[in-house]
Amino acid sequence: MPLSAFRPCLAFAMLFLTFAALARDYRYSDAHLHYVDFFQESAGMPALLAAMDANLIEHVMISGIPVAKKWHEDEPKRPRYYAGDDAAAYWYSATDVLVASALKRLPAEQRRRFHPFLCGFNPSDKNADAHIRRMLELDPGLWQGIGEVFTRHDDLTSLIEGSTPRANNEAMVRVYHLAAEHDLPVMLHANITSKREKNPLYLQEVEEPLRNHPHVRFIWAHAGTSMEIHRHQTKLEFLLPSLERLLDAYPNLYIDLSWSLLQPYLLDEQGKPDPAWVKLVSRHPERFMLGSDVVGRFDSLGKLMHGFDPFLDALPDAVARKVARDNFLAVLPRKVREQGLH
């Protein structure tokens, strides 16, 4: 066969190798994972570790769920989710005990991959900071953050027994002072608006702590959005300008790009990255992180984390790697970072 016959194959091979060299291979930190579900049940550590190893997830923020869903005696079937029926949910402090117990059974080399956040307290109770302090004293050095703290949270807000928590209430102010004292980041779930209002109705509840507690690193879960809001409003046109302003004004604000933001914000209906969001993340390369927000089951962990890959690919390479892995690790307490995170 003449040499000319091999030239198309050679050209194709060179093109393939070029694209292969340009392909990015990310390592991930999951900045938002719940070890248990709303019934305080979990698939367990072996399942979680297997999902992490299979999907290049090196580090995980691990927390419980601060409330438990009640199976009310008038309900004939056990609900599968907090929205499964009209029964209430209640604050459940033992969720942190479950997380701590699971971590303590791990060998040291695996345990270093987990970064537990303490969440089992009522954020409308001014005793909350005393409870958190007791938990820190019970397990010195274990807890590396506070959250996910549920404040404004769609229909769950009205289901939780007791008064509605706010991110700027007196109880949370005491928690923020404790967080600053112990160098702990705080992850807040605080919806930016309701299901109906087409304006940033609750934004001041987040902005006030950002302004008044500059020494606290705040991680805003889902950037104040939720799937329930999306079902009613599709897309919040004021979200991007609000984030631009807040990120410019408050260097202590970090954004958790968990799954409910993937569409319709980061990616359009065709799965293409939104240039405006690419620009925003590129302008603030150290302020965004990825989260799966799985609750107690881990089969979807890889799909959720790799779902961000098209958006990461649109970012400059160095920025993409920070968002995928490093930015979450950078907000952890200084003592943790000084121990080395590999």
Rank of each mutant, 00 (worst) to 15 (best):
E228D: 08
F114M: 10
F117S: 04
P140I: 13
Y26A: 09
G84V: 11
K198V: 15
R112Q: 02
S42W: 12
F308W: 09
P310F: 12
L3R: 14
H72K: 05
V173N: 15
F38M: 14
A43M: 10
M305Q: 06
H232W: 14
S292T: 11
L243V: 02
E73Q: 09
L22N: 00
L48W: 07
R297Q: 12
R166A: 01
Y28I: 10
A180Q: 06
A314C: 05
I57F: 06
Q40D: 08
G307C: 03
A171D: 00
A318R: 11
P241E: 05
I132V: 10
I57M: 07
L203V: 13
V216F: 05
W91T: 04
H72S: 10
G44K: 06
G302F: 00
I219C: 08
L236M: 12
S282L: 08
L118K: 00
V216S: 07
I160V: 15
V294D: 12
I132F: 14
H230P: 03
E207I: 11
K126I: 10
Q40T: 12
K235F: 13
A83S: 14
H131Y: 15
V336L: 09
W277Y: 11
L136I: 13
L239G: 02
L203R: 13
I255Q: 02
G162K: 04
Q339I: 12
L253S: 00
S101M: 13
Y250N: 09
R134C: 06
D326M: 06
P66G: 01
D129K: 15
C9T: 15
R196K: 12
M227P: 10
N127K: 06
V319S: 01
I219L: 14
Y81H: 14
H213K: 09
L156Y: 11
G340R: 08
A128N: 06
S260L: 08
S258W: 14
N212D: 13
L266D: 02
T95E: 02
L246V: 04
D30Y: 09
M52G: 01
